[in-house]
Every structure is written in C-alpha cells, then in structure tokens.
C-alpha cells in the first residue's frame, strides 16, 4: 500500500508561486494499477516524483508500506559519465542486491550489447529507459512508478516488459503517468486526472479518459 495524504506542492519562481498540486489524497493498494492522466505540464511527473519520495512536498505526506521503485523515466537515476555496467554496480550496492545476478538479467533483457560498456551519456533516451526498466524489473519491486516511457524500444522489448510489468497476473502495483489514453485504458484499474493542480479519481478508466479528453 502507498498512502498519499493531503499532498500539496508549490513551486516558487521569480516572484510568483505556482501551485502544482492542491491537497491530494489517495492510496495505491498492492497489485493495483493506477493511471495518471494530464496534459503536458499538468504535474504528472511531479506527482510521480512525490510518490517516489524523490521530491519533498510543500505539505502533506507519502508513506510506503511496500517496496516502491524509483521513478522510471527518460531522465534521472544514472550518472552520465559512468558506463552502464558501473551504474549497474552502483544500483546493486544501494539496493543491496547481487551484482552478478542483476547483470545477467539486464544483459539478457535490455539487449544493449556492448553499449553496456559505454558511458550512459552516449545512450539514446530509449536505450536509457531500457536500461532503467531492465534494472528495476531485475530488482523486483512491489510497485513500479513509471513516467511516460511506454513507447521505448522495439516491439520485442514492449512485449517482454508488458509480460513482466503490465500483465494482469504480474501481481505488481503500478503508477503510470501518460498522455497516451489508450495505454492507460488497456492496463489500469483506475485513473487520476490532473488539471490545474486538482486531481480527480475515477474507478472507471473510460470515464477518466472522457474527462481528460474534454480538458
């Protein structure tokens, strides 16, 4: 279970205040797959980072009662000047998992070949996301936080990550932010729509999508 209570986030910029999230509360039970819909800049990524406890809320709190992945996306989580392998070593250390096991899985899954021995800054954004995906799947979290990375990789990679993460029997909870409504509809059990700092929860994903499209 992830508990989000009265989450409020304000960004201060050049003399003004911008409210990104207003007093949002919800929970994500084990195995539940929550979609987050919103236009560009609506605050989807911010919400994901707040849920992941990577960013501090202005008010309110987030508590984790299961293991939660770091926010998987196009940016962050790697050191650009280090190779894929060295980044993998770092991640194995801080998540206290076995490096050799991690490496075997990632080599097989991400299909990055000799690129694993190149600095991550030379990767395309798709390759970066593939590495992040493979690593986080190898670490086996109870819940995955995913920020707009559905479209990476080729068909084969898609199918395999779907098998691991998005299949209904995977048993994993997901929080997925996307503006791709059809993906959310296929995968999620419920959805939040964010607009102008306010979030609204829908049990019925189709209805969430209708609301989102009307924005």
């Amino acid at each position: 279970m992830i508990r989000v209570e009265n989450l409020h986030k304000v960004y201060r910029s050049h003399g003004g205040e911008h409210v990104v999230l207003r007093d949002t509360s919800f929970t994500v039970p084990r195995g539940f797959r929550l979609g987050i819909l919103g236009r560009n800049g609506a605050g989807k990524s911010t919400l994901i980072r707040l849920i992941g406890k990577v960013e501090q809320p202005t008010r309110g709190r987030v508590s984790h009662e299961m293991s939660v992945s770091w926010p998987l996306g196009f940016s962050g989580s790697f050191q650009g000047s280090l190779t894929g392998i060295d980044n993998m070593r770092f991640i194995a250390r801080i998540y206290r998992t076995d490096f050799e096991q991690l490496r075997a899985f990632v080599e097989e899954f991400a299909e990055l070949g000799s690129f694993l021995y190149q600095p991550v800054k030379t990767y395309s954004s798709g390759m970066r996301a593939r590495l992040a995906f493979a690593l986080s799947i190898a670490i086996d979290f109870d819940c995955y936080l995913i920020d707009e990375v559905m479209m990476v990789g080729d068909e084969r990679f898609h199918q395999r990550s779907r098998g691991h993460l998005f299949a209904p029997d995977s048993g994993r909870a997901l929080v997925v932010a996307s503006h791709d409504a059809s993906f959310i509809e296929q995968v999620c059990d419920g959805a939040l729509v964010i607009s102008r700092g306010r979030t609204r929860y829908f049990d019925d994903v189709a209805e969430a999508i209708k609301t989102y499209k009307a924005l």
């Binding site: 293991s67 998540y95 206290r96 998992t97 076995d98 096991q101 991690l102 075997a104 899985f105 097989e108 799947i137 190898a138 670490i139 086996d140 979290f141 109870d142 691991h164 029997d169 995977s170 048993g171």
Partner: peptide, 14 residues
Amino acid sequence: MPSSEGRTAPAVLA
C-alpha cells in the same frame, strides 16, 4: 508473489 528467475528481491529500505 510470483517471482521469475533471475530477479532479486530488494533489501528492505530503512
């Protein structure tokens, strides 16, 4: 929980 081969459980944090 179903756990596929080659995956390692994360150490409990904190």
